[in-house]
Write a protein that binds this DNA or RNA. Sequence first.
DNA 1: GATGAATGAGGGTTCATTCAT
DNA 2: AATGAATGAACCCTCATTCAT
Lengths: 205, 205, 205, 205
Amino acid sequence: METTIQASRRERRIAARKSTILYAAGRLFAEKGYHRTTTKDIAEAADVSEGTIYNYFISKDDLLFGIMTELTESGKLGEQLQSSYLEGPREFLLTILQQRYEFLQKNGDMLQAVLSEILVNPELRRRYYEELIIPSQELLEHHLRERIERGQIRLIDPSIAARILLAMLSGLFILQVVGDSVIRSEWETIAQLLTDILFEGVAPG
Amino acid sequence: METTIQASRRERRIAARKSTILYAAGRLFAEKGYHRTTTKDIAEAADVSEGTIYNYFISKDDLLFGIMTELTESGKLGEQLQSSYLEGPREFLLTILQQRYEFLQKNGDMLQAVLSEILVNPELRRRYYEELIIPSQELLEHHLRERIERGQIRLIDPSIAARILLAMLSGLFILQVVGDSVIRSEWETIAQLLTDILFEGVAPG
Amino acid sequence: METTIQASRRERRIAARKSTILYAAGRLFAEKGYHRTTTKDIAEAADVSEGTIYNYFISKDDLLFGIMTELTESGKLGEQLQSSYLEGPREFLLTILQQRYEFLQKNGDMLQAVLSEILVNPELRRRYYEELIIPSQELLEHHLRERIERGQIRLIDPSIAARILLAMLSGLFILQVVGDSVIRSEWETIAQLLTDILFEGVAPG
Amino acid sequence: METTIQASRRERRIAARKSTILYAAGRLFAEKGYHRTTTKDIAEAADVSEGTIYNYFISKDDLLFGIMTELTESGKLGEQLQSSYLEGPREFLLTILQQRYEFLQKNGDMLQAVLSEILVNPELRRRYYEELIIPSQELLEHHLRERIERGQIRLIDPSIAARILLAMLSGLFILQVVGDSVIRSEWETIAQLLTDILFEGVAPG
DNA sequence: GATGAATGAGGGTTCATTCAT
DNA sequence: AATGAATGAACCCTCATTCAT
């Protein structure tokens, strides 16, 4: 029994270490970029030796992919959205916006780090697209279609509309990363106005 | 006079060479990213020696800033927008979307390369924000305010609305870069639907 | 008594494990060379942990010396040669050649691996020379002197002649290792011709 | 004209540098082996920076191949042997032995360095065999066949005999490298006795 | 101004060895 | 005695930058 507990303690320590390294890397990548972060930096930030990194990841690239995976898993548009047709469509949109906001609060750094490389690394980009964008796109599209059928929103192309929505969310993130401080501080207002515009339009009267 | 002509000829030759190098660098940065492009690569692509690059740019980073400047200059939302209040607001939005599309057609690769670094290089980011984002934001905001005053669109916060519009444009670019092929192929449809939604909303009936 | 038996059982187990590790190392060294073989490779091949290797050998180098010793012990020109003066000298030479051939069949790989390091590691070289070359040289020299005294071969310097013989044997090994396939396939013919030449010479008539 | 001279001076300096690096590497490889020699060592020995090595050789391995090539070029059994049928066969053998001796005096270190790796690096081994062993073997074989036809030596299989000769030469080298000091100091005596034995045999009377 | 050989700091990665369990 | 995670020095190699020509 003693042994079992010890073993599991060890196992837990090991699992934790992998995670520690990954988060240290993520933080640094976001801070100064993948290429300007050295394995030495990561080792120091994670408080392990450089060699240890390679007991958990096969290469520096592998860390990036690891971060990718982490994002993928926690970054999907919540499945709960699927069973939320009972909410009105406005509430639905506000919920999505809120979810995104919280996700970015938590994973913004990592997303920023990965996004930088995605723009420039085809393999990473492919994975990002297939594992994050496509599922999100499909989820939204499906949801919109349903809402349209139920007459909760008017007849528009759900595939295009889903893209517009996703672009909106991505764009707000980019703008914020690039330096716009209003987006974060006025998120509530933005979410309200955005919902308002999308549902009512800006046409006068 | 002879001297003057020679000098100006020389100046032109020098300017041309500088440009050649910058474009070669831009092409390569877009292709494989800033960090994966070596000065040797650039020298070969521009058909000069590595040393020569340093006669025109003080560092590799300086090339990036040079590209930034190039983008800044051609990337501003056209000044003609300022004097286009006569157009209806829908036409105005469609014009912007069209302009953006054309700009991205031409400079998308470079923007992609620079954006990757922007996400991760504070100094570059600051310049990008100040030289491109803020002016665009202000232009749009000003324009919206004017339209609102003229009663062409209903009363909304022009500062937030401008951000939403910019986010929209940025987001569509990102989505396309990341792999969505529909955005390019269906640009017309997207522009139409987007305009439609923004003006009329998606609320049924 | 119980204890004694256990101890000896234990000793045997320990000796066996030491041997397992040594052979695993030998096999790998022969396959890809000393420096390209990692302690991890050896541990896997011997089905022990890396740490365990260090319970039996003080360092990776020590494994090489261990293999050296193994070779030294099984590689000596058979002692039986010493009491074989009754055979004719031709038979004697053929016997030596046959012995060498068999030895190389069995230990060629290890010899190859060790030889590679011998050429380049002074300490190993010294041991090889003192433990293998000198004894062989002396054995042969002594044997030749005896034969000469008995009038079975003509009067030649036995020290030099022994060296020539040893060089011959070493050279055939090297040539074979380096890629000559004939040496192995035609060993019988070579042994015959070599004996023939050494005893009768190649002068015509 | 000035320019031409300068250019050629530079070219000469460059060619010399490549050679300097190669010889420094060769010396060190022979001294402590390929794997124990670092590129830093080589740089220091050649009095250049580490980076400079890579302006002339694509990798550390490439240095080894460069040494190989050097040996190949200077290591071939002299072509003059081909037109030396007028000499008696004994003189011919002595000439070969003398040539080998001189070659090893000059290139022994490099040969030793390369040989160590050859034993353990298949690609290097293949090249060594094809570029050095086979040509030597064929040259000797051809020569022996000619001598046999002219009745200068008796009827023996020239292919096998050539191998025996080559083994002899290789073996003497190995023995010397491994620590036998007599071979070098008594080379004359050895050459004489070897010739004597090969032509007259050791059979008594 | 143009060249490209030379530089050397610094990069990612490996691996023999140690030691807590 | 056995384990294997942790270590960190050392490795080979790259590349932005310099400078003599």
